[in-house]
Amino acid sequence: MKIGVLALQGDFYEHLSCFKKLNVDTFEVRSKSDIESINGLVIPGGESTTISKLLKSTKLDALITDKSSKGMPIWGTCAGLIMISKNITEGDPKPLGLLDITTSRNYYGRQIDSFIENIQFNSDEKFFEAVFIRAPAIIKLGRNVKTIARSSDNTPVAVRQNNILGTSFHPELTSDLRIHKYFIEMVDIIN
């Protein structure tokens, strides 16, 4: 199994380190040909306006949409979640539309409003420390989207629809690897 991490911009290094700790082969994805060798793709945190422009100039946007429709497991964190959303309230940047949710960018405010909260992931008894940095919020869910975790104000913060996983926080910034393991299991089952 090989997990690709989109390395156009953002905290791809942190995701790669997490997967390496779990002894999974990884690949930095920067061009269309990089997608061919991978079994699952992570779109990391970063600046969604920047990532969106680079997805377009590399033509990776259309390829990722195509791979997603053919069942490739894809996981977006924070800016990555914005990119895989069907709609975003601000209208810009244009998301890829892989996950039937509506997302609001910078929902919680500026950097000074960034926060850390303990959440329950996938009904695990042990809390997950969720890091929200200038984070987006999922404000509307499609019928087929399953909520895996909520924050204390009851907002969904981890959701899944078939082969697509989205988290509005950054599991890659903590040493808790449970959500990376969850994605690896997804990739394992789907492939």
């Binding site: 911009q9 953002g10 970063g46 800016a79 850390i116």
Partner: peptide, 16 residues
């Protein structure tokens, strides 16, 4: 925690 949020934003800027 606050230190992680501060460093975390810089991590989001990587490659930019």
């Amino acid at each position: 925690g606050s230190w992680r949020l501060k460093g975390g934003l810089a991590q989001m800027l990587r490659g930019g």
